[in-house]
């Protein structure tokens, strides 16, 4: 007997925990303008006030409220992670599907193109892209998407190549379905689960890349983000540990949650694990 997806997912305790924490972060990020109205960059008080005093997480080197930064920074981190992943998955799926379905010279051309991107060290490539386009939310999303799509393309291509030979696809061809219909209506739904799993894990990676870029000073200077907070606080590690520790813990827990959710989804969708 097959349990519904949702039941299988929540039976996995770590995944349930991850989902709960992620939900909390999403609510916090969405509610940031209500919880902490105004600009998170606003200077509210003395510099270097320790946490759990007048301000929940204290103030930073310019006297900004760190709790407000965490809430507003969560918006940036999640938004960048999500949008970049959706873009990367879309590009990767499209190219992978075309290459895997048509094979031959189209496959060769697309895969050489993919390899071109894969041979460049990803993070350095992201730095170069952001530096050239000058840092902004848009350029960071583009940079993360550009470095993230090749593995998805590879994955989708492999799945499509395997599916291409299956009887139902051959049948669809014999019935005279158009290529487009076969790709999107026949094969894609059958390879969706690995794509969803890879995509959800990619969100975690994207958040880390965004944080790393912001840490290096290549973040959007006008959008509060967790990486920016760590970067701005790192020279005060000896004087004021909370400047780095609090956003650091926020990134750690969020990325961990996304990974747990991603694995939970994988386990729940994997037919071989369904009866366990």
């Amino acid at each position: 007997m097959q349990q519904p997806f949702w039941r299988r997912f929540v039976r996995n305790r770590p995944a349930a925990f991850g989902l709960a924490f992620l939900a909390f972060v999403v609510v916090l990020a969405l509610g940031a303008p209500l919880l902490f109205p105004g600009d998170p960059f606003r200077i509210v008080d003395m510099t270097f006030l320790p946490p759990f005093g007048a301000y929940l997480f204290g103030t930073d080197s310019l006297g900004r409220d760190i709790a407000a930064g965490i809430a507003h920074g969560g918006r940036t981190s999640l938004m960048v992670g999500l949008v970049a992943s959706i873009v990367a998955v879309s590009i990767g799926t499209l190219l992978g599907a075309v290459a895997g379905f048509y094979r031959g010279w189209i496959d060769d051309a697309l895969m050489r193109f993919t390899e071109f991107f894969q041979t460049i060290p990803t993070f350095l490539f992201a730095i170069v892209l952001v530096a050239i386009m000058s840092p902004s939310r848009g350029s960071i999303i583009v940079a993360i998407a550009v470095i993230s799509w090749p593995p998805i393309a590879r994955l989708v291509r492999g799945e499509f190549m395997a599916m291409r030979e299956r009887e139902f696809v051959q049948a669809a061809i014999c019935l005279g379905m158009t290529d487009l219909a076969i790709i999107f209506r026949q094969i894609l739904p059958n390879v969706l689960s690995p794509i969803i799993v890879a995509g959800s894990l990619m969100v975690a990676t994207a958040i880390l890349i965004e944080a790393a870029l912001a840490f290096l000073g290549l973040g959007d200077s006008n959008a509060m983000s967790w990486g920016f907070m760590i970067g701005a606080g790192r020279s005060f590690l000896r004087d004021a540990w909370w400047l780095c520790a609090i956003p650091g813990i926020a990134i750690l827990l969020t990325v961990l949650s996304i990974n747990l959710v991603g694995e939970g989804v994988n386990d729940a969708l994997n037919p071989r694990l369904r009866t366990l």
């Binding site: 600009d39 200077i43 080197s61 000058s134 000073g217 200077s221």
Partner: peptide, 28 residues
Amino acid sequence: GEEWQRFGEAVQQQLAQVGIKATLRYED
């Protein structure tokens, strides 16, 4: 360097007080 970045953030806030919305730009 970093103090300049922090200075920019402070100036941005001070300009906001007088109604000038400043966007920061940091390049090589």
